[in-house]
Design a protein around this nucleic acid. Structure first.
Lengths: 182, 182
DNA sequence: GAACTATACGGAGACACTCTCCGTTTTGCA
DNA sequence: TGCAAAACGGAGAGTGTCTCCGTATAGTTC
């Protein structure tokens, strides 16, 4: 990639991250990002063919955060329910960090063609690690993709309804109880 | 309302119902509805100020179906889990009947200003009736709006990911176990 | 049944958005 | 320095929501 192209790409991602964080996915237009990054729409679209692939680049650092959160939760010296709930809460709060992200990422979980496919693999892997760690404390047959979708669903509702943290916690509590062995 | 206005309104709702059912909320444009109903866009927008308020009119008959489903589920001669799961399944399948409806209706649950506000009251009332009927079989502190949101979240994920019925059933099973007393 | 007024109609178009085409500019190498 | 390849960026196509306002019609009054 030519030096000017690399500079532009970096600046676009940096600017877009700030705008997406401030306004959420839906409320941001590509023209707005292009103007803020001081490039033309054509340049923006050559680097990122769709708004979602731009979003994917913006969320690049998430994968690390997910794995860190898993490590922390499963190594806690606490009962299984608390460890599980710790993870579910972290996961949900990462999904709701950017408005509009939860629904999009969760919808992409089973779609290998999505721009988010790589991230989804990370999330599924994280949930699988949680399942392995908690092992017999969970109901038999619980799968990583089920946890991903359940928490994704909760996060999407929290996001679109702009619910306070305690409402989210109550819902995640129900999910945790449903996942844990009786 | 003038007779011609009433005729147009009725025809718009009838036509829109068919189109929404066939294509889902997002994929239908207001111009498309206007053309199909053989009215101008101006006429359509005078009757329904937004696409959502048109959708609300289209979904008018849902309230009855919800109450019928509650009656059926709670009067079943079966264990609490089966009765609960019966209702959750019915509720989720009604929400996913129209593509795009689940997320929208669930997001409107706490918003009195939404075009769906009246419907949301019906849903909340239905879930409250379920709570009253199952009573001590549920964990203490379970609220109607929590059930509405949890199932709404599941329905939204099922809808956007186009999941098969068994994946939905597995998720609803987790929710049911989380709601029921241990 | 004709005149009149309030009501409703409907199309042109304003505005916003995603995304593309292509002439112009810049870069980096020979 | 010259030159191809690469990148730029703006005009605009296409699609959507929603509005304005001149025109047509319904329903009432005489």
């Amino acid at each position: 990639m030519r030096a000017d192209a690399q500079r532009n790409r970096d600046r676009i991602v940096e600017v877009a991250r700030a705008i997406f964080r401030a306004k959420g996915f839906e409320a941001v237009s590509m023209d707005e990002v292009a103007k803020a990054a001081e490039v033309g729409p054509g340049t923006l679209y050559r680097h990122f063919a769709t708004k979602e692939s731009l979003y994917d680049a913006v969320l690049e650092a998430w994968a690390d955060k997910v794995n860190t959160a898993v490590d922390r939760a499963i190594s806690l010296d606490a009962p299984a329910r608390e460890r599980l709930l710790n993870w579910l809460t972290d996961y949900a709060s990462m999904l709701t960090e950017h408005k509009g992200a939860a629904a999009r990422i969760t919808a992409a979980l089973g779609d290998p063609g999505s721009p988010f496919a790589a991230k989804c693999q990370t999330y599924l892997g994280a949930n699988q690690r949680v399942i392995n760690a908690l092992d017999s404390a969970l109901r038999p047959g619980v799968e990583a993709i089920q946890i991903s979708r359940l928490v994704g669903g909760v996060a999407a509702v929290v996001d679109t309804s702009e619910l306070p943290a305690d409402a989210a916690a109550a819902m995640l509590g129900v999910v945790a109880d449903g996942l844990l062995a009786p």
